[in-house]
């Protein structure tokens, strides 16, 4: 069977039981991206979405570094990823999402709030026709060092961003992982009396 992006979309698309907005209903995290360049203006829109995320006491404990494919820094980011995540090399953009633990001496809701900011970014990207895949497995100390990140910025996820690839030349092992379904639990909510 020849695999195409359309087939992947059909397999990987969420199957919601109740109606949700199309950015959520279409979102999934692919491992195969198109080489198409991401427009600079689209990148601005995507970060603007993150900027207006809510946060505890409005501390906004997030910061993002990003690199384009062929930039030196892009390769540095790739060098910190595990072997399992080397697929990220097909993405035209890599983003390093960092949290900031303290603001004005007060502890922030840093992990939770970074999650909210990244989710805004992901759904905004989805609206613009891009896909994201987030990765938590990478050498954080090495990344801090080789990118010379500000001391207060703790890298927590690397986000691969781009248009969906055509899957023509995808390696068979990677394809196998791409075809895995990601079912969702149903027992994650309890209605109180």
């Amino acid at each position: 069977m020849k695999i195409t992006a359309d087939k992947i979309i059909k397999i990987r698309k969420p199957r919601p039981d109740y109606s949700v907005i199309k950015e959520i209903a279409n979102r999934f995290s692919p491992r195969y991206f198109s080489e198409d360049v991401v427009k600079e203006n689209d990148i601005n829109i995507i970060f603007e979405a993150a900027r207006f995320a809510p946060s505890g006491w409005n501390f906004q404990p997030w910061y993002f570094y990003w690199a384009k494919k062929k930039d030196k820094s892009y390769n540095k980011i790739v060098s910190c990823l595990t072997r399992y995540n080397q697929f990220a090399k097909t993405a035209p953009i890599l983003i390093v999402a960092c949290f900031i633990k303290k603001y004005k001496g007060k502890k922030t809701y840093y992990r939770h709030d970074l999650g909210a900011a990244v989710m805004s970014l992901v759904l905004q990207a989805q609206r613009l026709g891009y896909y994201c895949r987030q990765m938590g497995q990478f050498n954080k100390n090495k990344l801090k060092k080789i990118l010379d990140l500000d001391n207060i910025h703790h890298p927590f996820v690397i986000i691969a961003l781009g248009k969906l690839g055509d899957y023509k030349d995808i390696d068979e092992r990677l394809l196998k992982r791409e075809l895995e379904l990601k079912p969702r639990k149903k027992d994650f909510v309890s209605k109180l009396d």
């Binding site: 950015e23 939770h112 970074l114 909210a116 990244v118 989710m119 805004s120 759904l123």
Partner: peptide
């Protein structure tokens, strides 16, 4: 905590 933050943001949106 991070993933909860994402889930809540989906709910918010």
């Amino acid at each position: 905590q991070y993933d909860l933050g994402q889930a809540v943001m989906s709910l918010v949106i």
